[in-house]
Design a protein around this nucleic acid. Sequence first.
RNA 1: GCGCUUGUGGCUCAAUUGGAUAGAGCAUCAGACUUCGGAUCUGAGGGUUAGAGGUUCGAGUCCUCUCAGGCGUACCA
Length: 566
Amino acid sequence: MKIKSELSKIIETALTNANINADEIVISDATKPEFGDYQYNGVMKLAKQLKKNPREIASMVLEHIDTTGMIAKVEVAGPGFINIWLNDDWLATQTTAILEDSRVGVGKVEKPQRVVVDYSGPNMAKQMHVGHLRSSIIGDTLATLLEFLGDEVIRQNHIGDWGTQFGMLIAHLEELGTDGNTQELKDLEVFYKNAKVRFDESEDFANKARDYVVKIQSGDEHCLKLWQSFIDASLGHCEEVYEQLNVNLKKEDVRAESFYNDQLPQVIETLKEKGISTNSNGAECVFLGDDETPIIVQKSDGGFLYATTDLAALNFRDKELKADRICYVVDARQAQHFKQVFTIAKQAGMVRETVALEHIGFGTMMDKGGKPFKTRDGGTVKLVDLLNEAVVRAKETIKEREAHSEEALDALAKSIGIGAVKYADLSISRESNYIFNLEKMISFEGNTSLYMQYAYARIQSILRKHNAEVSGEIMVGDAIEHRLALMLLKFEDTLSKSAKEATPHTITTYLYDLVTVFMKFYELNPILRDDVDEATKMSRLQLATLTGNVIKKGLEILGIDVVDKI
RNA sequence: GCGCUUGUGGCUCAAUUGGAUAGAGCAUCAGACUUCGGAUCUGAGGGUUAGAGGUUCGAGUCCUCUCAGGCGUACCA
């Protein structure tokens, strides 16, 4: 239900009938229950333009607002706010209408776009570390969300598989022998470290490594084969992590750096032709605005840089993938880089003017002391280790409360532990740095996945206990049911906002508010007690069922499984 | 040096993009069980939104300066 746009239409009609012109009508949620459900704050601006008293204008508008359907009551308050109360019967009808809807009342966008979401982007030379967590799950949520809303999403995993370090790695792989290497490849950190040791201790090895870099680039078959087997092994690690994280990235979504390799000279040619780049100190550079430091697109030795690859990728995504919107889910620290690359791409005509280019930046994960997240000895924390730890902790927590069989416990621990980490990450507004705290993540209190899971399990428990058909209409009988019904209908507005701004935390905040309201409803309004009449019982069962459906769908978009029992 | 960015109760985070008395959760204190799962709910205390000016009907949000962090700054990605 697009409540806000429905209300906008009503207000627009009222304004027209009152002979007032307004360009855009923005409806916002009421800040307090006593101010109603929604409010329109635009009158103050209009009054300024018309040079009239805002309260006077608000009263004029008020007279023309249709209060026969959706709206129950309107009121002018403060300097000129128009407060809006929705009608109970309307809420009841609308919620009843979506009881059987698998999309729980969420429609599809009118104009679907083709959206490229670039996320995860691990480096093949190393194991995935905690830094990849945010990109992977924020990107995946965005992709799932846009798809659900009807856009055509193209996932792109821009893996780092090209560069000088690969010479060293494949030389080491060759030395181990392609058959005997499987053991050491299990841990890429170890593999990398050993390769580095060889590189430093042996002049022959180092020369060979450098030689191999050139050979891969020139397409030497033997080296490419070694390289490919190394990439396959490394990608295998990533796929295990994606599997564990419930992140929907497949092999066919991989479009690696190496893919763009042969397009790089063309990028330079285009930039030269258009007079965008110049030669400076032997390197091909782009100077933007008044910036003194350039963006280097080709090194003085002829090598290319990541800006060049990104330009080639932008060109490909525009020309071949024909994207309307391209989202880069990458660390916020690369903001300048993307700003520059986007500017160059548009200037050079590599991307059409109409394409929306967005850097979906996110903050860094910190430890409890507010420092960048590291292991005790200062190394990077491997993502698998962190996730495994979360599962272990979840298992301990669940075990304390209820008796489960060992298999059930393991399965529960997996979905709950991983879900808790994901939820905690997604619930923070993405651009700020955040402090990683596993205990808080696996807590049942506050805005955590377990609080949602608990509410869901409670609802399922009621339905099991009822153990019969649930039918009939929803009736909105009191203030708390009014709030609950309204929250349920707000799901679509929430998802739209989240998609537009690429902010997963909009969804978690909504779910938390929904569940909080549901918990209050649950306390105040008994469902299965004997003294509740049949129609009320059914209505409340329906409300509970619908709440469960929305929680499930919401968590599903975040890539988190719900469980019927905790 | 230049550029970008952040600063919100003791702690961790919000604030519908300029709207009403800045909201939650931890923690603290006080309540509610003949439990539809108490892993819950109700309430209280705790804030000059780093500081100082400015813009206007109205500022956590916009502008200027100061203070304190973080990040980026010519051939890594």
